[in-house]
Simulated assay, not measured.
Amino acid sequence: MNIIQSNIANLPTKHGNFKIKAYTQDNQEHLAIMSEDFENIQIPYVRVHSECLTGDALGSLKCDCQNQLNLSLDFIAKEGGLVIYHRQEGRNIGLLNKVNAYCLQDKGRNTIEANLELGFKEDERNYKIVKHIFNDLNIKKIKLITNNPHKIDYINSIGVEIVERIPAVTEVNEHNIDYLNTKKDQMGHML
Rank of each mutant, 00 (worst) to 15 (best):
N148P: 12
I145L: 03
I158K: 05
R165Y: 00
G94I: 02
K183H: 08
Y154S: 04
L61F: 08
K21A: 08
Y45V: 03
S60L: 07
E89P: 03
A9C: 14
C65E: 10
G55T: 06
N2H: 10
I20R: 04
S60E: 07
N10M: 13
F134S: 02
I158C: 04
G159F: 11
I145P: 00
S35R: 00
A57C: 05
E117K: 07
L137V: 07
N138C: 13
L61S: 11
N70S: 15
R91F: 10
I166D: 05
Y85M: 13
I162M: 07
R87F: 13
R109A: 12
V46P: 04
V130C: 10
N100Q: 13
G16F: 04
T170R: 02
E122A: 04
N92C: 07
I155P: 10
G188L: 08
A57M: 11
Y179C: 04
T24Q: 12
N97M: 04
S50Q: 00
F18H: 11
I155N: 11
G59T: 08
M34Y: 07
Q5Y: 14
N70G: 12
A77K: 12
T111Q: 11
I93K: 10
M1G: 07
E36K: 02
E113M: 08
T170P: 09
A57Q: 11
T182D: 12
Q25V: 07
N173F: 06
I4C: 04
P44E: 05
A168K: 02
N148S: 12
R91C: 08
Y154E: 04
L144N: 08
H189A: 03
L11W: 12
E39S: 13
G188S: 12
R109H: 14
T24M: 02
E51M: 05
I20F: 04
V83H: 05
M187F: 05
Q25T: 04
K107I: 03
L118A: 12
D185K: 06
E117W: 01
N135Y: 08
I76M: 05
N115H: 15
D106M: 07
A114L: 07
I43W: 14
I139F: 14
N2Q: 14
I142D: 09
V83R: 07
N156R: 09
Y102N: 02
L61M: 12
E113N: 06
R125P: 15
R47T: 14
V83M: 10
M34N: 03
H132K: 15
I133L: 03
L180I: 13
E174P: 01
N156E: 14
S157C: 05
N148V: 04
E174F: 08
